[in-house]
Structure formats: C-alpha cells, structure tokens
Design a protein around this nucleic acid. Sequence first.
DNA 1: TTTTTACATAGAAACATATCTATCTTTGTA
DNA 2: TACAAAGATAGATATGTTTCTATGTAAAAA
Lengths: 101, 101
Amino acid sequence: MVLTERIEADKLLSAVNMLKVIAHPVRLAIVDLLTENKRMTVLELQEALNLEQAIASQQITLMEDKGVLVAERVGRNKYVSLRFPKMINIVSCLENCCNET
Amino acid sequence: MVLTERIEADKLLSAVNMLKVIAHPVRLAIVDLLTENKRMTVLELQEALNLEQAIASQQITLMEDKGVLVAERVGRNKYVSLRFPKMINIVSCLENCCNET
DNA sequence: TTTTTACATAGAAACATATCTATCTTTGTA
DNA sequence: TACAAAGATAGATATGTTTCTATGTAAAAA
C-alpha cells in the first residue's frame, strides 16, 4: 500500500495500533473504568467487569505492552493506570464525528 | 462482562464497532483519502493505495456494510464517500489524547 | 455482438486474536 | 513452614480477519 498525502504512513500505522487496542469491549471498558478511578488493581478490574482471572491478566498485559497502561507493583498487587488519561475522549469524539453529516 | 457505570454497554459496543472498522491500515487510509477527495470510485481508491482489485472491493464493501461509507452507482463506476465526513478527526483526537500526560 | 472495463464474490489458505484450562510464581499471612 | 491471595503464563482450541485466486456480472465501447 502506498502512502497517502494527508497523513504520513507511519502516523497512520501508529494510529491503527492504538485503535486496535481500544477496539475491543473488555479493553475499552478498562479504559473507561480507569478514566473514573485513575488507579486500580488487576483484581479490581477483573471483578468490576466480571472477567475470568486469566482474561483480566492477559488483556491488561497486552494493554501495557501496547503502551496504553502503566503498572506499578505493590506487594502482591499490581496497580494499573492509563498512560494517557484523556484516551477515553476518543469515544465522545467518535460520537461527535458520527452524528451529523 | 458487566456494564460500566460511565458508558452504557450498548454505547461502548457501538464505539467498539466503529473503532474496529478504522483500526486497519487500508481502511483508515481510505477514510483519509475520502476526507480530502470527498467522492472517489473504487478504482481510484484502488490505484491511489496500490491495492489489488479484490482487496479494494472487499474492504470498501465491508466499510459500507458497517455504515462508514455510502455508495452511489453511476454506470459501471461506483462512487463512495464518507458517511461521516469528520471521521478522520479521530486520528488527531488520538494524537491529542496520547501526547501529554 | 464481442470485448473491455469496473466491480463483486465465492472459497481456500494464511494469519491473527481471543478464550479456556491448568499450572506456576511471588508475596504476604497464619 | 504451610497456606492463601494476586497475578502471570503456557498450550490448546476456537473464532475471526485478511488475503489470494479465480470466476462471475453488468454496463459501456468497439
């Protein structure tokens, strides 16, 4: 695929990578909860979203790897928070974009 | 998975569906090109992005099905345009969200 | 009426993602 | 020390997505 003129190819690809992370119901819900709560443990997220333990851990690890979450270990807990607290804005941006013609 | 308090479950899911459509390099590039050109044929998009004919047709059909593009047939050409012209804003929104902490 | 152009689509193969089950590690606590 | 709690991870399976090849169709041009 050739580059577009408006958006350079690398910028487009990094946007795609971010979009892929949040284009998933569990992961977007995690972003949403962390927007409100700022800092939660894996277990808190797991319980708030009623997830299997392994799913919570796997998705959170993925989100860390992709640079969406940052984590801090405290004893046997792991606290995670949004690397970019305003990330949830995407949802209202989408709503704005997709309502008027 | 349980609903979050901040964003209702159905709103979250429809956001996820839109995000999935644009979380793909070819499809985001199509959005980008149509932001500039407003109205293009399948062939024009195919050539601008250097795609195989089948890929262009398949991705454009998918984007129509998901409500991102609208199409109009004229003779043997099919003109497509963005259903929501401001959709590309998502990219700059992402940039804004993901730069400052 | 044959050919070409623009586009669609079916079916297979390739690849990616998500989920499940089970097990493992680390840390705190009885 | 033994146990429980919090989390990680491996491997299997399931599911979904993307791409490829080939062929089909409709409209225009020759």
